[in-house]
Nucleic acid binder design. Sequence first.
DNA 1: CTACAACTGTAGCGGTTGCTACATTCGACT
DNA 2: AGTCGAATGTAGCAACCGCTACAGTTGTAG
Lengths: 177, 177
Amino acid sequence: MTATRLSRDVLLPRLAAHVLEHGLADASLRPLARAAGTSDRMLLYHFGSKEQLVADLLAYLAGQFSAALDRAFPAERAASREDCVAQVLAITGEGTFQPFMRVWWDIVSGCAAGNAAYLEAAGAIMDGLLQWVVDHLPEDDPDPQAGARMVLTYIEGAQMLAAVGRGDIPQAGLSAL
Amino acid sequence: MTATRLSRDVLLPRLAAHVLEHGLADASLRPLARAAGTSDRMLLYHFGSKEQLVADLLAYLAGQFSAALDRAFPAERAASREDCVAQVLAITGEGTFQPFMRVWWDIVSGCAAGNAAYLEAAGAIMDGLLQWVVDHLPEDDPDPQAGARMVLTYIEGAQMLAAVGRGDIPQAGLSAL
DNA sequence: CTACAACTGTAGCGGTTGCTACATTCGACT
DNA sequence: AGTCGAATGTAGCAACCGCTACAGTTGTAG
């Protein structure tokens, strides 16, 4: 049990690195294993099935994402809702976050297909991000609950448009917020 | 040539129907062919390759989407930006549009993976939607260009959050627009 | 009727998929 | 030293993937 847990803990970061580079949608056991320095046989041994492996991977990636977010943003609050949007977009638009965004859209695609594990992971990530926005809105925001939800929605729309090569649209819309 | 074009025109709606039901991400030639009443052999004969088939399918789906949008929305303008967002969300949240949203996230996922055909189709769809929003904003909007872009961004964010089971977030954020 | 091009079915290629049966090695405990 | 379970390698399964070679069968134009 202990050895198994240890092995999984060693494997997960390597698997995550491979997925961040090559995407989650068409990740298969043999390339995954090669990247992690094992065999498909052992991946199945440690995780039971590919489905479980992906579920564990999603949980791991969700943790990594919120950790990276906390690391990238200082504790201070934004000057305005608009500033809060701009801050998040500036950071997540940066190169460091690009690989995660790439797999994020694979996750959303899995959610739209009805995959329960994807839905759980994506929901958790969004809940975390919402909390982060709540914590970073200006102190004097007239309605932090609604404001944070509006900000989060706009951020996500901006990221989708950026993913399809229309990042100029949310940028130009920012002034109308 | 004529016969080929005809065949493709007969095939495309059937292929689109299958993709709208089962998703685009893991659509493969044999099931596609079965759904269209042909063989994988003939699909490749008519389209040349799976890549080209998907490209043609994307163009067809983009056309179907904007047609459905024009059909669902009357010509009159919205009362406000907020109302415009609410109108689009009400329609696209309806059951009829659900299958399209399902394949939409497959398209976005393909864009994030760098697929050029997906990027082109997605960009065209977004451009069409942006134009639609511009045309449906209130006459007296102070800045229709920026306003439409803001509205579109919010709509897309709302749809992503809905896809991951957090449709309540954009709903609650609407009042902060 | 012939000739030629468009069309289509059959069968299969080499590759990948998730997963498993079987045999073996390793390491800790008695 | 011996035992037992955890860990691992090898080999392979049946199903699927996109695609193609080959052999027809049509439909049509001269």
